[in-house]
Write a protein that binds this DNA or RNA. Structure first.
Lengths: 196, 196
DNA sequence: CCTACCGATCGGTAGG
DNA sequence: CCTACCGATCGGTAGG
């Protein structure tokens, strides 16, 4: 019983998390009630608590999972042998891909983490700051090595990441632009803005 | 009595709107209660209803006021004699200035309009779409006249406006970067990405 | 997984 | 501008 029950609980929890993520995006975290989530799943609200501990739990899970995936990719890039502009392009492409393929969780990790409860909020902010500083360090080195034009590294990082985050607005309004065109044009725009 | 009372009501309403805007930004629209707003002003919640009709009213006011300011500027740009890249630069600078100087309302008009009640939501979305299409038309003409590099106009518009919107994250985290440096570096980055 | 229900809090109204 | 209060809804618990 143990193993099967555990795996059933796992998939049920995933189903709840994914439905919740979709609702958090559409209506915002605070405007989404546990009743809304329960309705979407087809159960009564109290039944959700067999799988999750709290509403905040749902948000926490999504936010930290996504943050970790970005960090893993950054580590890969940092230890690669690519040039600095190439590293930045790899990061840009990864962010775009995540935003398109893992839209729901990426959006939440980017826009709804403000609602994380007190101790986790500080953790998340620190992780975020650390990530951006490491990307900015790559830009700085690229400038030193004359691969990237002179620009304030923090402004550069902010500009490119914000542009990519904003894909959510695109996605939400149901634009019918194929992902490859979106990615190629955006990468071209941003890399060209950085190139010497 | 009429005139004075009217002007007092006006300024009081402005005070409420501005406090509300600040709270909507910090906590989100749904997480901000009328009690929160009343506390910030120093009155009891029911007293607010002498000046505003509803919570949605506060949001509506801010969103449409800001949208109108952007539209007015766009009209100026459209009827100017500047080149197309110059027009885009003017739009970029206006957006950045608004984001820095009118941060609270700009943020709300950009991120919290989803909470507008039913009939207004559609209006707002239509206005937004129209605005972006007109900016994209400028990009398209710039490409035709070889002032701007070949790029998907919608992607270009989205990328630059999203990058600017994202200044809020910057602002919120209390980065100490002077506005001029931010503006100059971001404009350089974006215009360079578009230039031939 | 349900019914029944809790205390808290919500936006807003009545009446002064 | 207040007190007093409304009906609705919230996240979550008890108990089965």
């Amino acid at each position: 019983m143990g193993r099967i029950a555990a795996s059933q609980n796992g998939s049920k929890k995933e189903a709840i998390t994914s439905k919740a993520a979709a609702l958090f995006i559409r209506k915002g975290f605070s405007s989404t009630s546990m009743r809304d989530i329960a309705d979407a799943i087809g159960v009564e609200a109290p039944s959700l608590y067999n799988y999750i501990r709290s509403k905040n739990d749902l948000l926490e899970e999504v936010c930290f999972q996504v943050a970790d995936r970005y960090l893993q990719h950054l580590k890969l890039v940092e230890s690669s042998r690519a040039g600095h502009l190439g590293r930045i392009e790899s990061i840009i492409r990864f962010h775009i891909t995540m935003m398109i393929q893992e839209f729901d969780s990426s959006y939440l990790a980017e826009h709804e983490w403000i609602h994380l409860p007190a101790p986790l909020l500080a953790d998340f902010k620190a992780q975020r700051k650390n990530y951006r500083q490491r990307v900015a360090a790559i830009v700085r080195k690229g400038i030193d090595r004359k691969e990237i034009r002179r620009i304030h590294p923090d402004v550069a990082v902010h500009t490119m990441l914000a542009a990519i985050q904003g894909i959510e607005g695109w996605h939400r309004s149901g634009r019918k632009l194929d992902p490859a065109t979106l990615e190629d044009n955006m990468v071209q725009f941003l890399i060209n803005g950085l190139k010497k």
